[in-house]
Simulated assay, not measured.
Amino acid sequence: MPLGIVVAIVWLFALALAYPYLPGAQTDAFKGLSVLVGLMVSLGASSIVGQAAGSFTILYSRTMRVGEVIKSGDNEGVVLQIGLFATRIRTLTGVEISIPNTVILSNQLSNFSRNPEGQGMWLTTTVTIGYDAPWRQVHKMLIGAAMKTKGVEKTPAPFVLQTALSDFYVEYLLHARILDNGLRLDILSEMHAHIQDAFNEAGVQIMSPHYERDPAEPKVVAPEHWEG
């Protein structure tokens, strides 16, 4: 417990013991004033008590620890300190920010440092490609781009899931394993660059077409192109 909190508790305890011996402590006016002051302190300290309760909830629920990479709301970074009233994190751009504990508790908290498979995390990104692109070819290009990215683990190997067959396009979700959570955005940026290069070289557009009218010919993939 911080030293300031201990000192405050000692002073409050001493004041409670000394109260009966104060001059005029037994008069109705003094008692009424005491009630008024107590009410004012209670109302004014409600937010402070809420912040303190939030810090204990965070600490004892073990949702995050110092050194872990988290995301709370729009803020993402490494936890520097979990204080009594606020949590300090250093963002991936090097900016140190302080987030009130009640704000953290009221928002969804993502902890990128917790993974049942051990150190690291699965990095994901999504592309939407039209149905006229062979899906096997798209898988190969996405996996190849991930394998070229520095920081992506070769074992377990990257893989692709087709998460949706939408009206106009297929959604492909690329999974790649990384070990350094702190470089997540840097690795993701490089992987996106490799994906763009791979699709440009193959002449496949990264776009989500929208329906306006029936095409002159069905937009399907010919069997000779199925293997990509």
Rank of each mutant, 00 (worst) to 15 (best):
V6I: 15
A8K: 03
I9A: 07
W11H: 09
A14L: 12
A14K: 05
A14Q: 10
L15H: 12
A16P: 15
A18V: 02
A18K: 04
A18N: 09
P20K: 09
L22F: 11
L22N: 12
P23D: 05
P23E: 01
G24C: 00
G24N: 04
A25N: 10
A25E: 09
D28F: 15
D28G: 11
D28S: 14
A29P: 13
A29Y: 12
L33M: 11
S34C: 09
V35A: 12
L36N: 13
V37L: 10
G38V: 05
S42P: 01
A45S: 02
S46C: 10
S46M: 15
S47L: 05
V49Y: 11
G50V: 00
Q51H: 09
S55T: 03
T57Q: 10
T57G: 10
S61V: 00
S61Q: 02
M64A: 06
R65I: 01
R65S: 04
E68F: 13
V69F: 07
I70C: 11
I70M: 11
K71Y: 04
K71C: 08
K71V: 00
K71W: 03
S72M: 01
G73N: 05
G73H: 04
E76I: 06
E76C: 11
G77W: 04
G77I: 07
G77M: 07
G77E: 13
Q81V: 07
Q81M: 13
Q81D: 08
I82F: 01
G83S: 10
G83V: 02
G83E: 01
L84V: 04
L84C: 03
L84S: 05
F85A: 12
F85T: 12
F85L: 02
T87D: 11
R88I: 07
I89M: 06
R90A: 11
R90L: 15
R90Q: 13
L92V: 08
L92K: 05
T93W: 13
V95D: 10
E96Q: 15
E96T: 09
I97M: 06
S98H: 08
I99S: 05
I99H: 08
T102W: 07
V103A: 01
L105G: 03
S106I: 02
Q108S: 14
Q108R: 10
S110N: 15
N111F: 08
F112P: 07
S113W: 10
R114C: 08
R114S: 03
R114E: 15
N115M: 06
N115F: 04
P116L: 13
E117I: 09
E117M: 07
G118Y: 03
Q119Y: 13
G120C: 09
G120V: 00
W122L: 11
W122K: 09
L123I: 02
T124W: 06
T125G: 06
